[in-house]
Structure formats: C-alpha cells, structure tokens
Amino acid sequence: MPESNEESGRFQAGDVVLLTDAASVQFRKPIVVRVIREIPDRYTYDGWLWLDGYQLNAKGEAVARRELFVMRAGVQRHDGDGAGGTFPPCPNQGPSLGRPPRSGPNGSSSGNPKPATVRR
C-alpha cells in the first residue's frame, strides 16, 4: 500500500503551509504558502528541501510565486484553505518586532523640531 502524504512527509500541489523561523531564518516574519510542488531534483542538505509555491496574503490570495529552501521539520501544515474570502491569521503575527519609531529632540516622530508658536 502506498504511503500517504502525511507518512511520506512530501508536499503536494495545493498543500497550504506556514513557514516560520523553524523552517529557515529568513522567515522571522512568518508567511503562508500554497505549494505548487516539492522540487526533488535539486541538491540539498539532509533534512532540507526546495518548495515551489505561491505566497498568500491574509485573504488567502496569491501575491508572489516563490522558490523556497526550507528545513522539512520546520514546515507546518496550515489549516486555512483561503476559501470564502477569509483566511486564518498566522500565529505570531502581531505588531512588528522591528525598531520603534524614531523620535526627535522634542519628542516628534519625524525628527524635526516642533514649529515655534507665533505670538501677536
């Protein structure tokens, strides 16, 4: 009896996966991808693979086609299918973890001083 997709660990067309930093350091900000195919004929390190797929936005719409080099053990199957115009949010997708906005000498966010008050 042939192995199921889950047992073999292979990804097939239509699978929706979540890529986080567990799959590769490039996914510090997680993305969701709909798999086109797993690319078996490229040389990889043991436990790594190439995926061809579409990066999805929050609505489940394809926004970019990508070829991704990922660690197999770090790829998570995503429950969302993108149908009906809704798509579940990705875990860990909250406020940006980047730097806070810069503030200028007067507390302004642009770095420019506040305009002087004109008295008449």
Rank of each mutant, 00 (worst) to 15 (best):
M1R: 05
P2F: 11
P2R: 11
E3T: 04
E3S: 09
E3P: 00
E3I: 07
N5K: 06
N5A: 13
E6K: 05
S8R: 03
S8G: 03
S8Y: 00
G9T: 06
G9L: 06
F11L: 15
Q12I: 13
Q12M: 03
A13G: 06
A13C: 03
G14Q: 04
G14W: 02
V16E: 08
V17H: 04
V17Y: 04
L18G: 10
T20K: 01
T20E: 14
D21G: 00
D21A: 12
Q26V: 14
R28E: 15
K29G: 09
P30I: 06
P30N: 04
I31K: 03
I31F: 01
V33W: 06
V33K: 02
R34I: 05
R34H: 03
V35G: 03
E38Y: 00
I39Y: 05
I39T: 09
I39D: 15
D41G: 05
D41S: 04
R42C: 02
R42N: 09
Y43E: 15
T44F: 00
T44L: 00
Y45F: 04
Y45N: 11
G47F: 02
G47Q: 05
L49T: 13
W50K: 02
W50G: 03
D52I: 04
G53T: 10
L56T: 09
L56G: 04
N57A: 01
N57G: 06
A58S: 13
A58M: 08
K59H: 07
E61T: 07
E61V: 04
A62C: 04
A62L: 00
V63L: 08
A64T: 09
R66A: 12
F69S: 02
V70N: 09
V70I: 12
M71K: 13
M71I: 11
R72V: 12
R72N: 00
A73M: 09
V75S: 08
V75A: 07
Q76A: 11
H78S: 05
H78A: 10
H78D: 10
H78Y: 15
D79V: 10
G80I: 06
G80V: 05
D81P: 00
G82S: 08
G82K: 07
A83V: 10
A83F: 02
T86Q: 14
T86R: 10
T86C: 07
P88G: 00
P89G: 06
C90V: 12
C90E: 13
P91N: 08
P91W: 05
P91S: 07
N92G: 11
N92D: 15
Q93A: 13
G94L: 08
G94Y: 14
G94I: 09
G94M: 10
P95S: 10
S96Y: 03
L97A: 11
R99E: 12
R99S: 10
R99P: 04
P100E: 11
P101W: 05
P101A: 11
R102P: 01
S103R: 13
G104W: 01
G104C: 01
P105C: 08
S108Q: 15
S108L: 08
S109L: 14
S109H: 11
S109F: 14
G111Q: 07
N112K: 13
N112W: 08
P113E: 15
K114N: 14
P115M: 02
P115E: 15
P115S: 11
T117S: 10
T117R: 14
V118T: 13
R119E: 15
